[in-house]
Design a protein around this nucleic acid. Structure first.
Lengths: 225, 225
DNA sequence: GCCAAGAATGAACTGCGATTCATTCCGCCA
DNA sequence: TGGCGGAATGAATCGCAGTTCATTCTTGGC
């Protein structure tokens, strides 16, 4: 998708890695490290293939093929098949958290903050469909190794929501007779299920409108009376 | 767990399959069919092992070992490894739906009906921990073949909730400006996430009290004003 | 042009695990 | 008690897929 077409078809152009940047600047992209174009292409290919067939039914060879590289090449960029998936998931979550953090610098109302999170969460579908599928199918997950590290990301998400809820309670906006934890899990679960159902049925929706609807119900449910 | 200890250790008693029932009654358990004790033992073992290691990291040999039978024996009772898991999941969902159907015969208030579903859903943790883990890790899922058929079960669950919500809306109990579908997914998602988090962190909780709390928020959110 | 450094390749290796099936073991009946 | 039908066994088969590594290709400096 976003990745340029299989460069293997243009043998003459294959090895340019430093792009147009000369050596004066030290911060070259380490040919084989993160940030190189091939690195990213492998990640994208892995996400696509795994989203289509599932982790255990996606041979490294299929990922390599999609990325337009040889099987062995993947091991120049990543330690193992696990490592590829882990990296892809990590970077997605990191991006999400950076985005939220950024927005929170100027958005302070607890209600609006929750709405923002909901909306970004629901939007992930449109941003990168394959990644959304992968999140729904692999992260909750099946392989213990994925479960373990991705659990950490979910905890962080919940943590953020809890803090917002708690602040809302302190400010007297939200009722205090429900635990922030329960509310956070409910919100995450509700949104994620909506996303999940959209992903599986292939339905598209207006993420802003849907987020508004869900949050309307939830916020009505927790507003102080 | 519930299964009797590995009978393989008592060679002398192995083959009694008809139990104490003589042949007068035709409805004998077909030695190798559903309902036989070994059949159930294999199912239980599969659920436990898969809950612990995940489907793709659970060799048939491990399931056989846990069930106290030989590898090949499993193929006398089931068509394939897939078939074992499919059967286990199917029967769990079937049980859930029968339970709900039964209760609905005497419970008519929409609010109470939703609360009942929430409670049974949350209780599954206590009923069979391994199965709950399996549901969280495999059903949402990973292997396409599981996804496809279990999706059908989820749809049925959502369907039931939607109908209740719609009836509540008609009766004027619930607000009509939110779609029954969105509400149903939110409810399912919220409950399932709570369950999931309990399953993964190993936390125990009072399913009745938790269900009450979640449903309090949700019902407040959707009540007509 | 020639060479060294390192990127890329992909065939081959290896281990694993689902499934099969020839053989053994029982329990029952004549 | 002999032997038949079916249940159970588990070693052997077969294919697959993650990883390795000897070899080939590029590039950039001289």
């Amino acid at each position: 998708m976003a990745a340029p077409e299989i460069s293997g078809l243009r043998p003459g152009l294959k090895r340019l890695v430093k792009k147009t940047r000369p050596d004066s600047i030290k911060a070259e992209v380490p040919a084989t490290g993160p940030g190189s174009e091939k690195y990213q292409r492998i990640l994208d290919a892995a996400v696509e293939v795994i989203a289509e067939h599932g982790y255990f039914s996606s041979p490294v060879s299929a990922i390599a093929k999609r990325a337009g590289v040889a099987d062995g090449t993947i091991y120049l960029y990543f330690k193992s098949k696990d490592d590829v998936l882990r990296t892809a998931i990590d970077s997605t979550f990191d991006k999400f958290h950076r985005q939220v953090e950024e927005e929170f610098r100027t958005l302070h109302d607890p209600r609006a903050q929750l709405e923002y999170i909901a909306q970004v969460h629901l939007e992930s579908h449109a941003v990168n469909r394959s990644m959304a599928v992968l999140m729904q199918t692999e992260v909750r997950q099946s392989a213990k190794f994925i479960a373990e590290f991705s659990h950490h990301h979910l905890v962080k998400y919940i943590q953020v929501v809890r803090e917002v809820v708690r602040r809302g309670q302190q400010e007297g906006i939200f009722r205090r007779d429900v635990s922030d934890g329960v509310v956070a899990h409910c919100m995450f679960g509700a949104i994620d299920e909506l996303l999940s159902s959209a992903v599986f049925t292939g339905r598209v929706y207006d993420s802003k409108a849907t987020a508004a609807q869900v949050m309307d119900v939830l916020l009505s449910g927790i507003q102080a009376r």
